[in-house]
Design a protein around this nucleic acid. Structure first.
Length: 107
DNA sequence: ATTCTGACGTGGG
DNA sequence: CCCCACGCCAGAA
């Protein structure tokens, strides 16, 4: 919906991430047709902070590392949320990343 | 208006 | 294998 901009597209994808799954910034960016604009995805997440409907905690970098956890309230809030969904996280690193990975294209 | 930074990713040395 | 630099776009100072 709406090509209002890169942001809205990112939101649309992130909102569609199923529970217990995660995706990477690059995957979303690539899905949008801008594999080099992965940074924008993260930036969009920053703006998404205002939109509680955006599970930004389900979006991590291509390493499966919780890089953005620093932007959340606490220190383990992001990790807690992920673990709450069944995702195992150790030292800010998602375990079985390939297993919990969700490809926007799969939608 | 200009400059810099920022939740990334990929490639080159 | 590790380190550095580039690209992308947008928002804030």
């Amino acid at each position: 919906m709406k090509d209002s901009g890169f942001f809205d597209k990112v939101y649309a994808v992130v909102k569609q991430i199923p529970t217990g799954k995660v995706t990477s910034y690059g995957a979303i960016a690539a899905y949008l047709g801008a594999p080099k604009s992965a940074r924008m995805v993260g930036w969009a997440m920053n703006a998404a902070h205002n939109k509680p409907e955006i599970p930004a905690h389900r979006v991590v970098n291509r390493n499966g590392l919780l890089t953005g956890k620093h932007h959340f309230q606490g220190t383990n809030l992001m990790q807690q949320l992920l673990e709450n969904e069944g995702i195992k996280v150790v030292n800010n690193q998602i375990q079985n990343f390939d297993t919990v990975f969700w490809n926007p294209k799969t939608k």
